[in-house]
Simulated assay, not measured.
Amino acid sequence: MTVSDGVFGDSVRTSGVERVVDVRLSTSHGDFLAIGYLDRESGDEQMVLVYGEAEKEGALVRVHSECLTGDVFGSKHCECGDQLTAALHAIVTAGRGVLVYLQGHEGRGIGLLGKLRAMKLQAEGLDTVEANLALGFPADARDYRVAAEILHELGVRSVRLLSNNPLKREALLRHGIKITEQVPLLIPPREENMSYLWTKRERLDHYLPHLDSVAD
């Protein structure tokens, strides 16, 4: 994949986040430092999991958009829950890293009810982009300012970004995050989410080369 070791545009260093609480969190993946933040601009409460010394160069970082249906209920419609699990495993295996879990990103930023309405339209034949647009939403309404501000506050110098999404990479670069590598997070597709994944690849430019072998 194309990577960057520089910063795109001007860094945004004026923090809109307040670090509220730090607490050790033992999980099935490992023991993390959980840090709670308040986004002063939106009022959203945000949380990150830090493993090891993330301040060093090249920390493995996953910026994960909340997905109630996938992360909590194990929906087969998307790969979000599997990506969350894989990201936590990868961070622990690497020995250090950060997972930023972003509230307010449900349904690529259109909210839970909007997402459920979009899923209903997809069941009726629209793809995920068409469904969002039909409801009057952008194809992707997410903003990554708060993720960048949290990473700056943590003192993360540069990241190896766990993501297939070029727009996420570009957004973090615009907010002054130095990205040394973009690391794909490829999850074996299911029959239930193949159409969804193809749309992400063909219409949203996500890096999903493993779909070719499934198609063959």
Rank of each mutant, 00 (worst) to 15 (best):
G74E: 01
R108T: 05
R62W: 13
A90G: 06
G95I: 12
V63N: 01
A87C: 12
V92F: 13
H77E: 14
C78P: 06
E79Q: 02
Q83M: 13
C78V: 12
A86T: 12
G107V: 09
R62I: 10
G95P: 12
H64D: 06
C67K: 01
C78M: 08
A94P: 10
H89E: 15
T69G: 00
D82V: 12
H89I: 11
L99D: 00
R96P: 03
R108I: 13
H89P: 06
K115M: 11
L84Y: 09
G81W: 10
L88F: 09
K76R: 15
G107F: 08
G81P: 11
F73R: 01
G104S: 11
A87Q: 03
L113I: 11
G107K: 08
K76N: 14
T85N: 14
G114I: 09
Y101I: 04
G81I: 02
G114Q: 10
V61Q: 01
E79F: 05
S75A: 07
A90T: 12
V98T: 01
G95E: 11
E79A: 04
L116G: 02
C67L: 05
Q103R: 15
E79L: 04
C80Q: 00
E106N: 09
L99C: 05
R62N: 09
K76V: 13
T93W: 12
V92N: 05
G109I: 12
G107D: 02
E106C: 13
I110N: 09
L113P: 08
A94W: 03
V61G: 03
L99H: 03
L113E: 05
G97N: 07
L113M: 14
G109L: 08
K76D: 15
A86Y: 06
A90W: 13
H64P: 09
G109K: 04
S75F: 09
G70H: 06
I91S: 02
H89K: 15
G111A: 07
K76W: 11
L99M: 15
R96Y: 15
